[in-house]
Every structure is written in structure tokens, then in C-alpha cells.
Nucleic acid binder design. Sequence first.
DNA 1: ACAAATACATACCAATGGGTATGTTTTGAT
DNA 2: ATCAAAACATACCCATTGGTATGTATTTGT
Lengths: 195, 195
Amino acid sequence: MYAKSTATIASILSAAQTLFLDKNYADVTMTEIADAAGVTKGALYHHFPSKESLYLEMMHADLKEKQAIFKSAAESAGSCRERMKRVVESFLQLPPQKRELIKLVRRDINIFRNPTRERLVRAYQSALPEQVEKIVRDGIRDGELADADPRLLAWMHVALVEVMITDYAQKIFSDRAAMADYVVDLFFSGAGNTQ
Amino acid sequence: MYAKSTATIASILSAAQTLFLDKNYADVTMTEIADAAGVTKGALYHHFPSKESLYLEMMHADLKEKQAIFKSAAESAGSCRERMKRVVESFLQLPPQKRELIKLVRRDINIFRNPTRERLVRAYQSALPEQVEKIVRDGIRDGELADADPRLLAWMHVALVEVMITDYAQKIFSDRAAMADYVVDLFFSGAGNTQ
DNA sequence: ACAAATACATACCAATGGGTATGTTTTGAT
DNA sequence: ATCAAAACATACCCATTGGTATGTATTTGT
């Protein structure tokens, strides 16, 4: 019964991802997405009932992918410090476009058009912190980290990681491994002079 | 020649601030702003030539105010650590609405509608980091901080500070001073267990 | 082969919203 | 008092855009 449409859907989702990253939600038009995907609005609305659902499906697919990546990195073996570095690297090693999709979510923080959108935004935003929190809990339990609120500490850590996706940080470091080292060292030891 | 209109302008700017914080730029309508300010679109367009200019003027006024506050805190006397705490507190002590205006700018990161907007966004975004960077430079010079890129370190520090405006952090800490302490301690000493 | 479902294209609609044109009222200088 | 400028209000315009209605082409099960 089904003529294959997977290629069209993929191209629509890809075009939508690029455009939504480039402009605000309201500034991206359905015609624009259709054009970029090489189809017409008719085809677009055949596959997606509305602009909102297209946005949600696109983000949801990306979220699932990232959750899996972060989870496997967080559940790897080794010391708290090693696992943390692995998680940071798993984030920094994402292709730039995928990595920067977090910015798209950040735009929506505290602006919830509907419950579905709110759930998605919250889940997306906490995908990385959730995994880091698990490592932090283990670190505190094993005495590698000082006793403190694990969730807050995890968010602090992720805040440091996200500085690394700024242009300035990109210019300073030669590779992802150096970035991950820097972040994890700063998180564990701080910037103070302890000589 | 001038009938006094300062009150109207102030009420328009205030209404605009609230609404732009609550929704995306495109989702805020000029009629809405006018209604919230208790005037009509006619009065609105009498004082501001366009929606864009209203947005820019509102943000620019806020930026100038914050730059002054952060600057005076950063140039206070004392050790690197003391000054840093003072800057953090000057940020955290802002009224909630003013403090959260940074979120509004964050939405626009990497979305530059025009050169004026880009300049504003960049200036707004770096208002706090700029002052922190000065302190960091002094800290490195005086041996209180380990040698590292001062600008990057400043952004890292600010990233930590901004975690404090999340709902979760608000619930944990009792007062602003405790928040500032936590951030500065974490920045200087890290989260690792060094016993 | 052929009918039905799917995949896509074309043409159109209705509402939204930024901006304008044109008023009327109020202010302030002389 | 008067008159021009400023401060508002009212009514309207029109370009944009999400969504629909209705087509045609292509695939697929039988």
C-alpha cells in the first residue's frame, strides 16, 4: 500500500532542522521548509498535520538519539572522573549542527506554548544533566567528590560544558579531548591557585 | 512645546519588557503592548517608529543600567575573591524581572536580524563577563588564580552564576549571599574531594 | 490489469498583525 | 485668548502565512 516516502520525510526533517536553527520558530515559514526540502506545501502537509507537529517530531527524534548517546557514555566503566570526561566528549563530539540544537531549546525556556512543547523542552534540556547527575552521585558516594547537592552540581557541570560550544572556546582549544580535560579539571579542582 | 509624555513612554517600555519576556518577539503584538500600557496603537507609534525600535530602546536602557551596576561592583576594593563575590551578588540581587532579561537575549544568540540587534545582543551578553574578566586578570596577576585564559575563565564563571537563576537553585538556597558563596567557592576550589 | 490508497502538486482562503492616514484633544509659548 | 505643536485615538490597508480544498500522478495489493 505504501509508496516509499521515507526519503521525502527525511529531507523535510533535515530542512526543518536547519531552518529552525537559523531563525526563530515564527520566522520559519512552511513554504520555506518545503522549498528547502525540494517539495511543495502539499507534500509537507501530507506528511505533517501542522507546523507545530513538524517541529515536535524533529526535536523528538533528535532527543531520543542524544539520550541514548549520553546514557551509554555515562554508564561506561571507570572512575567518576573518567566517566565524566567520556560524557563531556560524547557531547562535544556531536556534529556541530546536532550539538547546537540545544540552543534551539534554550530559546523556549520559560516560553511554553503547550504542554507537549513543555515536556519536550524540559526533557531535552535535562538530557545531559540527568546523566551527569548519576555520575556525580556515584562520585559523592565514593568520596571522589565533596558532599553537595548532586543535581545542582550536575547542572553546574553542564553549564561549564556548554561554554565550550561558544566561538571563543572553539578558537582556543585544538581538539575535543583538550576541551573535555579542561572542563573536568576545572570542575574537580577549580581555578584557584593551590600551590 | 512638549506636553509631558514620560509617564506614557515609561508605561509602554514596562509593558513591552513584561511581554517580550513572556513570549517570543514575533508572538508579541503591538496592539497587545498598547493595551497592556493602557494606550492605543496610535500613541504607541507616536513614540516609537517601529516594533524593532521599541524592543531595542527597551533593551538598551536595561543594558546601560546593568553595565553601571556590574562595573561599580567589579571596581570595588578587596581581594579577587571578595570582588568576585560582590559582582555575583550584584547580579543575583537584581529584581527577578530585570535579572531574567538575560534570557531574552539568550534567545537571540546566533539569530541576528540586523547589525544593530547583533551589537546589542553581544554587548548585553558580555556585560557581566567583561567585568568578571577584569577581576580574573587581576587574580592571575596576583597569584590568587592559576594561569589560564582570562576571558574563557570569566565566561566559565558567569555560566556558573547563571545556573543560580534556575528554579531548582532558587529552591535550594536561602539567600543571595549563600548563592554567591557557593558559586565563588566552586569556581576557586572545584567540587573534588581534597581532604 | 485495475482499483484504491498513497504521494505529491496547484490554487486558494481567511485571519493575523505591522504599519499608515487621518482624525481629535491637550499642552504650552506668546 | 490663540495657535501651533505635541499627544493621543480611530479607522483602515495590505502583505504575509498557516492551513485547506482539490486536483493529478504514482505505487501496490489482488
